[in-house]
Design a binder for these strands. Structure first.
Lengths: 339, 339
DNA sequence: TTGTAGGCGTTATCAT
DNA sequence: ATGATAACGCCTACAA
């Protein structure tokens, strides 16, 4: 009942009374093989429960129909959305996603990338521009097509689909400045090895400086991604550097945490404090008041990266760099500076 | 600069002045090869930037060091957590995760599973017991080890790591009954092809019936996963079948949606309405009041499934079925029935 | 301790 | 329209 090996193509060929070559062509749907023969081979395949052996096929074709993604953990909803969209896009085209996660550790990211290349992926999707020094040389040697997501390459040499986090962040702060705010606090995401978090922080500073406002060091805290961390960060700011009327969150979970902390403390938002986020996660729109934030099209980034990679694998050319829209979404958590 | 092919092991061997076999053994860290030789081979590997060809290796060893997961979309945070934990567990052991998602479509799930098997995964992780009729026979033929997650197999024939959603659901309802509630509404997850959602609904009904309470059809709505859907569902219930004092959500996003809808409408929770969820997503604990829910250890499920699979791949034996704890977590959204 | 050679399951290039 | 057969890159008895 269990003893016999999985049937191989030669078994199919024998059972169908054709040669190995013909069986292979029949399965590939080649026009060269007579329709009746093709049908018979297919029949035998079903009968025997034959499944092609991917490794053998990959060895012969030098293609694995597999794409690798080296992502930060998918329990960040923005990466979850992108992963889902990417996987969907790939499976539509008969490709499968090989996923490797790392926790913002460049060494681990490098190792994961190497592992994916060894597994024979036909292409790669990476996040951001901040990587281990050896990553790009590894990619170069492998000659695999890859797409950088979320960020844009200032040098213009890598294929990427992303946005300027700096400019988007400037738009957020501009909005708050327009509402009359002058006293700001920032809850930034962790900027080490995360160019998106860093660019957002840089953009915020820049927007303020351009209006002659200096962001005090005590008014900036950096925190790992998460609602709980956002709560803690706001508490910390309130305790150590009070007096601000606007809080800029480096991402939505941090901003939402700040918002929930305000609610728990009875601080009126936006009456006494305005809060803005970044990403536009689903939850942002569901809260009351809704969170003002930047809409980052995570799912679109994932699917575009997939489409671009598939196009390149099919020999088509794509624009080297693709900028995604990242509009400011004004909801209820930002309002005029209190009198 | 770009022309030459990636070096293969035979190139390494030649450069190191050893045979292919020795080079292979050296890389495998075999004790058979002299340490100096091993070192020299390693040196050449670095120098040439040699990367093993996984397909060739898989073909020869009949092992891919790859594990497949066929999961519902990872933008459901519980699957995101499990995916992260699973990927982490696997990578610790030098394995990589092949991820295939499907949107609760048994046909798509079957196709995805087949694709993973063809890609040569060494093992599989599946979710739940509700699958396409051909899935288990496919798995049987492939003879691959697999783990069912989240659910337990009543038949006891599949390896699984999960919990009884029925019993956990009974605990939730029991808790509400103990608080004096008699008028219930249920916002269930979609039960088609989702045994977890169905079992939770069944359990709720059962707990009520055991106290002589019938759950009116109008008091049960089924909704796709999501906060927005939870809001809509509560609105619908309020409009069509008012008078209930307790709402049982099939999962946390639905329950949280209901909670937010109440807040938006000025309905006091738990003063006028008690709400309970299922899963204990991060957000559940962060809201004020916190959501009463069942703590489902999603991350642990993912890592245990990985550990079990790795153990089995290493030839060890594991208990066929592993039940995870799923305690009720009482927070602030449930309280005594209003007088 | 190292080398030789056969095989892993396909695809693809020749013939026929 | 179909068949032989040589790759594909690596591993692993078996030999030396």
């Amino acid at each position: 009942m269990t003893g016999r090996q999985n049937p191989k193509l030669s078994d199919v060929a024998r059972a169908a009374g054709v040669s190995l070559a013909t069986a292979s062509r029949a399965l590939a749907g080649s026009e060269l093989v007579r329709p009746e023969t093709r049908a018979r081979v297919r029949e035998i395949v079903d009968m025997l429960g034959y499944l092609p052996h991917g490794a053998a096929r990959a060895l012969a074709t030098r293609r694995s129909r597999t794409v690798g993604a080296v992502f930060p953990p998918v329990d960040n909803p923005i990466f979850a959305k992108a992963t889902r969209a990417l996987a969907h896009e790939l499976s539509q085209a008969g490709y499968t996603l090989l996923l490797a996660s790392h926790d913002y550790d460049p060494q681990a990211e490098l190792a994961a990338t190497r592992a994916l290349i060894e597994r024979g992926v036909d292409g790669l999707v990476l996040v951001g521009m901040n990587h281990h020094a050896d990553l790009f040389s590894l990619l170069g040697r492998s000659a695999l097509p890859y797409e950088i997501t979320w960020s844009l390459d200032p040098g213009g040499s890598h294929h990427c689909v992303g946005l300027s986090h700096r400019l988007a962040s400037i738009r957020v702060v501009q909005h708050l400045l327009d509402l009359g705010h002058r006293e700001f606090a920032v809850i930034a995401g962790e900027t080490a090895y995360n160019d998106r978090a860093l660019d957002r922080l840089v953009g915020a500073r820049e927007a303020l400086v351009s209006r002659g406002i200096e962001l005090a060091a005590a008014r900036v805290v950096e925190a790992p991604f998460g609602i709980a961390q956002g709560k803690a960060a706001l508490s910390h700011l309130l305790a150590t550097a009070p007096g601000f009327t606007a809080v800029v969150g480096g991402n939505d979970p941090l901003a939402i945490g700040a918002l929930l902390e305000c609610r728990a403390r009875g601080i009126d938002v936006p009456g006494r404090l305005s809060i803005a986020g970044f990403d536009d996660v689903d939850l942002a729109a569901e809260l009351t008041p809704g969170l003002t934030t930047v809409r980052v099209p995570s799912a679109e980034i994932g699917s575009r990266a997939g489409q671009r990679l598939l196009a390149r694998l099919a020999g088509k050319r794509v624009r080297r760099s693709e900028e995604m829209p990242a509009p400011l979404v004004v909801r209820g958590t930002t309002g005029p500076v209190p009198a």
